[in-house]
Design a binder for these strands. Structure first.
Lengths: 114, 114
DNA sequence: CCATCATATTCCCATAACGGCATGCGTCAA
DNA sequence: TTGACGCATGCCGTTATGGGAATATGATGG
């Protein structure tokens, strides 16, 4: 009860999308809803595996389920990705290298390389 | 050599930013370069801890080091965040709920709730 | 060369993550 | 009711993680 090894993966969208297969699932769901088995086959993973990833995605609110008979159609709920996008937004201005500090820094690197 | 428990955290930016403290570090570095000890104190974490997180960030290319005497100034290299941003870009159109499927889906949910 | 400061690294622990496999559970058809 | 189907869970094993404490490594000043 001492060392918290790491935050639960189910804690937030950041963790949820850290797993490649979950990103694949989300990408696939942009095309519409999918029943678990089909989704699993489409992505080449076992059904339990798909169910587990879908559970994580469901718990962080990135995915919704619609029950229809014995099938469960999973659909995307991309709103959960907004926090990630907003956080990233705080860094966009640094990509272009237009920020003074970064520019100066890059210059430093170049000089050191000579 | 059998079950690969999970991808290494050091594998990519997605994993690197899944950890809240690393996001804090990146956010702090937007203000400029920081020596490890100062950064650690500023964020209220031990020095070894800061070093470890910085190492991960360095390995995925989100951070650069500039050595100056016995200090090491860490600086942001936000370019590594582009892949994340680009991946997210593929979902922006779904946030507004303007996508037919999502709308229809939400309607379904509402009806079921009655 | 030695003491010191700034960092990085190692060792160890507790925990969480993923995967496979087997199984539980609900739904539907016969 | 029974069996098949679709999916969720449970359990187990392996691996990675984050944290703390101690220690190693590097550079600097005397």
């Amino acid at each position: 009860m001492a060392a918290v090894a790491r935050a639960a993966t189910t804690s937030d969208a950041f963790n949820a999308i850290a797993e490649p297969q979950r990103r694949d699932i989300l990408a696939l769901l942009r095309a519409g809803e999918w029943p678990v088995t089909d989704l699993a086959r489409e992505l080449g993973m076992s059904q339990p595996r798909a169910s587990k990833h879908l559970r994580v995605l469901r718990e962080v609110g990135l995915v919704r389920v619609r029950e229809a008979g014995k099938q469960r159609w999973y659909g995307l709920d991309a709103r959960g990705l907004r926090p990630v996008h907003e956080w990233l937004g705080g860094f966009e201005r640094f990509w272009a290298g237009s920020f003074d500090r970064l520019d100066a820094y890059v210059q430093d690197l170049k000089q050191e390389a000579e």
